[in-house]
Amino acid sequence: MTGADDSVLPFAVAPLDLRGRLARLGPAIDAILSRHAYPDPVARLLGEAAALTVLLGSVLKSGGRFQLQTRTDGLVDMIVVDFDAPDRLRAFARFDAARLPPRGGVAADALLGRGHLALTIEQGGELTRYQGVAPIDGGSLEAAARLYFQQSEQIPTFIRLAAGQVVTPAGTSWRAGGLLAQFLPHSEERRRQADLPPGDTPEGFQAHEWTEDEAWTEAQAFASTVEDHELLDPDLSSESLAYRLFHERGVHVFPPHPLRDACRCSSERVESMLRSFSQAERDDMIGDDGMIGVTCEFCSTLRRYNPDDFRED
């Protein structure tokens, strides 16, 4: 069975009360990363962020929006990834090129730094907008996402992310992938997790004794065997990878959700934005060629406008 690139594959392992998704990004993430010509460490981090975004956002119904955003003091001080259901993905990263080592070797904690991860869900219509926030403390996106689920959702969650360049007969291209597995038994008691460290505690305080559910222990053991190269291998389908990881317990896969690189910017949106500025602000935007140039941070599309079209009578 051959699973398509640029898709998210939902799966379930009923005996373990496990549900999850596998994300495999090929041409879409290659287009996003290549058009910005990011340095390799920045491209890998943004690829991981894109994989995490589609793992989380692909459950939304058409018309919903999911955004992942980081703001930190690291070399990459901001990442924004948008997923517009059912299939539109866009992303960009802001980084300090002067602080990047010339040969690209940089520790993960310096790259991401310390700050926060924000996940925003807009389900469309009259439904409430929701935002969850988790700290980033010099670790990885995986660690921040796991902490988010532990603190905010209280769902036992395993996450693995990978991004990198792969050489194929057609050439070298960027790829990204991710695995999300969640323990969702009917009993809330079985979903309980160990309490987070309480910080300063009074003398004699005894933490609540907690034993992890055996099914979740087993599920994590299977999921943790996934390797980065498996998530990035263009010749290994998502269906085959799901079977490889969980076949001992029986895994059921569902129809995949396709994805594509697509920006929501348009000439109409940019024109509306320009009209919202004052005349003085628009005058400051006029370039040497006498035109106003606006470049989309996501897709790098440059649009030029005649300032006379915005003059106030």
Rank of each mutant, 00 (worst) to 15 (best):
T172W: 15
V251H: 06
S237G: 12
D73W: 03
G26A: 11
L161D: 01
S152D: 10
C265A: 12
A262S: 14
G63A: 09
G132Q: 09
F298S: 07
D288P: 05
R24W: 06
Q123L: 09
R264H: 15
Q193M: 11
C299T: 12
D200T: 13
G47T: 00
E142Q: 12
A134W: 09
V166L: 03
K61T: 13
L141N: 09
L141M: 09
T53H: 01
F149E: 08
E312C: 13
G105E: 13
S7K: 01
G250D: 06
P197V: 05
L16F: 03
T217I: 07
L112K: 07
S276V: 05
A219D: 04
D313L: 15
L68I: 02
S62P: 14
V294R: 08
D109Y: 09
G287D: 00
T211E: 09
E312Q: 15
E281P: 02
M291C: 01
C299P: 07
Y130T: 10
S278R: 07
T201L: 13
D228L: 02
P135S: 13
A163T: 00
F310Y: 13
E122K: 09
H36K: 15
E209S: 12
L236Q: 06
D233S: 05
Y38N: 04
I32W: 03
G177W: 06
L45I: 03
D6T: 05
W174F: 14
A242P: 02
F310D: 15
T128W: 12
D137L: 14
F205W: 13
A107H: 06
G171V: 05
D77Q: 06
I79M: 04
A37G: 08
L52A: 07
F92L: 12
P10F: 15
T157P: 01
L112Y: 02
R264L: 13
I32M: 11
D195P: 10
I286F: 01
A162F: 11
S237L: 04
I121R: 13
Y243I: 11
D137Q: 14
G293W: 00
E239N: 07
D5C: 08
D5E: 15
D195N: 14
D261G: 03
F95P: 02
L16Q: 03
D73Y: 08
E312D: 15
L241G: 05
R160S: 00
T2Q: 10
R71D: 08
R303G: 11
V59F: 07
E248V: 05
R21P: 00
T2W: 09
H36G: 10
Y148A: 10
L184G: 01
V8H: 04
L302F: 05
M285T: 00
R244T: 03
L241K: 04
P202Y: 10
L52H: 00
L25A: 04
I32L: 10
D82I: 05
A85T: 02
R71V: 10
Q165A: 02
V8Y: 07
E214K: 03
